[in-house]
């Protein structure tokens, strides 16, 4: 009987050991191998790739861009997604279900198709987004979106927005529907209710959403590749190039391992902090 649960997890465990743990270990090992234009990959243990990535300012620039974009995308999605989740939560059915479908549905549409849409909307200086912004009087001259960080941020914010809405919405679902009334009855105005009652309770959802959005934005590939083109690189497109164009796999593996380690550390630390902060309050 004691062996029962282990027997049950065994098939999945074997699969994961063989197809996840072994390949990841091989990738880490790969980052320490040597590579030359003509000799290919040499299975030796050297720190050449790590030294190259950690010493060359080019890589700092790429990683800096990657995390800058991820931070901006996270900020945008929190600032715009959280209010939308709140509005959704206050809607009545069937509208709530319908708009939830409209907002979360894009999550399930191929990211290539969605990014293509942004490429079309950005489309040079005469793109629709620029026309709309200019006619609304928000800008006076067209902003370049294609092949810029701005464009990547906007497109990624769109691609990842549903995760933030979903996360905040889930937190708001746990809110006692009477709680806003309770605050109002005690004399709180609408803004006070939002700031003192709703926001603190939505915060765990916003933070959880931020962790998801940040890590997905920092490791996003298709969107930066399409919007950024061949020259404006982020970590994932850089690794892709090393693997499939330059064929310097050890260097690409080093970039990938760094990305993995940084993101895993961030996610674990962030989750710990959120848990510690809220364990007492929300259990």
């Amino acid at each position: 009987m004691k062996a029962m649960p282990y027997l049950l997890v065994l098939p999945a465990l074997v699969l994961f050991a063989a197809v996840v743990i072994v390949p990841l270990a091989m990738t880490v090992a790969l980052s320490f191998h040597d590579w030359g234009q003509y000799k290919g990959i040499e299975p030796v243990f050297i720190l050449k790739n790590w030294r190259e990535v950690l010493e060359d300012s080019y890589y700092y620039e790429v990683f800096g861009r990657t995390f800058r974009i991820a931070a901006l995308v996270t900020l945008l999605s929190a600032v715009f997604g959280a209010p939308e989740a709140y509005i959704l939560n206050r809607m009545k059915s069937p509208w709530r279900g319908f708009f939830l479908l409209v907002i979360l549905g894009p999550l399930l549409i191929s990211v290539v198709a969605r990014t293509l849409g942004w490429a079309l909307l950005f489309g040079g200086n005469s793109g629709l987004v620029n026309k709309a912004l200019m006619s609304a009087g928000l800008i006076s001259a067209p902003i370049p979106f294609m092949f810029t960080e701005t464009g990547m941020v906007v497109a990624l914010a769109h691609v990842l927005m549903p995760y933030m809405v979903l996360s905040v919405w889930a937190a708001l679902q746990r809110l006692d529907p009477q709680i806003e009334n309770a605050a109002v009855a005690l004399g709180a105005g609408p803004l006070t209710v939002l700031r003192r009652i709703v926001l603190p309770q939505a915060m765990p959802g916003i933070l959880a959403g931020a962790v998801i959005v940040f890590s997905l934005a920092a490791s996003a590939f298709a969107t930066p590749a399409i919007i950024g083109g061949r020259r404006l690189k982020v970590a994932s497109t850089l690794a892709y190039d090393e693997f499939l164009n330059t064929l310097n796999w050890p260097l690409g593996a080093t970039v990938a391992v760094i990305l993995l380690v940084v993101l895993a550390t961030l996610v674990i630390v962030a989750n710990r902090l959120v848990e510690r902060r809220y364990a007492q309050v929300f259990g």
Binding site: P23, S219, S236, A239, L259, A264
Partner: peptide, 15 residues
């Protein structure tokens, strides 16, 4: 869900 897909892709390619 936690491992960047780009890393998974690289690991699978190598493997």
């Amino acid at each position: 869900l936690m491992i960047p897909y780009i890393v998974l892709g690289i690991a699978f390619l190598r493997f």
